[in-house]
């Protein structure tokens, strides 16, 4: 555990010592800010129209603003995650510092966990920016906070799972750009797998759509925690980290 913290601290510092963390925070703030602006504007316009037409039915902020925003956040995450994970192992291999890590009295799994946790915390910090936007909603309205928390839980689970996959891919190359590109391709694949179910109802399509990370995020966005989805994410995280530590081990045999 102590070693995990040592690695975690080092990774955290190096995220914030380089421009990467600030760049990611800015990208997210700008894009999410844009989505937030359009979502709230749309909501306000709709509300006004409804009133003019004489229907006093109040619209649900959770359903019309927060839910699409959470889904948007998960999609933006898809694009940012490769940038968070791509350097984690690729850079250590390129610069030779992997020799330091792998000849220190630390288990491979501890290094993997430390790196994954650092990536997860950076991802949480990035999502934290959207918290400011969400806070504004509370200032002007009375949204239900429980579905929001559930939504963020879902975002973190989805993020944790994609980050684990990203780290795994980063162990397989010494080139950051290759690692980032491949991670992005895989994230995109996992995302669009869901579309198969739109035109195909066969068993195969169900399996494929089950693997899509988006399918499992939708209930969270609605504020529903389904143990099936939690288990899916947790097992993907576990599996990803396990693969990573095996891959790190095999670096010794491959090099």
């Amino acid at each position: 555990m102590r070693n995990v913290i040592v690695i975690f601290t080092k990774e955290m510092k190096s995220y914030f010592a380089s421009p990467i963390a600030y760049l990611l925070l800015t990208i997210f703030a700008v894009i999410f800010g844009f989505f937030f602006y359009s979502a709230t504007r749309f909501f306000v316009l709709q509300g006004m129209q409804m009133q003019m037409m004489g229907r006093g039915m109040p619209m649900d902020v959770n359903e019309y603003v927060i839910r699409p925003l959470l889904t948007n956040a998960s999609v933006i995450g898809l694009f940012l995650i490769p940038m968070i994970t791509m350097r984690l192992y690729a850079e250590e291999q390129r610069s030779g510092t992997i020799e330091l890590l792998m000849t220190s009295p630390v288990r491979d799994l501890e290094i993997v966990l430390g790196k994954w946790l650092a990536a997860l915390v950076l991802y949480a910090a990035i999502l934290g920016i959207s918290g400011i936007n969400m806070g504004l909603l509370f200032a002007f309205g009375r949204p239900d906070w429980k579905p929001i928390l559930v939504g963020y839980l879902g975002l973190m689970l989805q993020g944790g799972c994609l980050l684990a996959i990203g780290i795994f891919i980063s162990t397989m190359t010494r080139n950051q750009i290759v690692a980032g590109g491949a991670t992005f391709a895989v994230c995109l694949m996992l995302w669009v797998l869901d579309w198969v179910s739109a035109y195909d109802q066969s068993a195969w399509a169900k399996v494929i759509s089950y693997l899509s990370v988006v399918t499992h995020f939708e209930p969270f966005a609605k504020g529903v925690i389904d143990s099936k989805d939690v288990i899916f994410y947790l097992s993907m995280i576990f599996f990803g980290l396990f693969l990573t530590s095996r891959s790190v081990e095999s670096l010794r045999w491959r090099s």
Partner: peptide
């Protein structure tokens, strides 16, 4: 074991003191 590899395993974005503290904790 203390090991100095052929290319010193250094992190260019760390300060020397910071790097040595990290290695110290890594080595237990």
């Amino acid at each position: 074991i203390g090991y100095l590899p052929e290319t010193p395993p250094l992190y260019p974005d760390m300060e020397v003191g910071e790097y040595l503290s990290f290695v110290g904790r890594l080595k237990g």
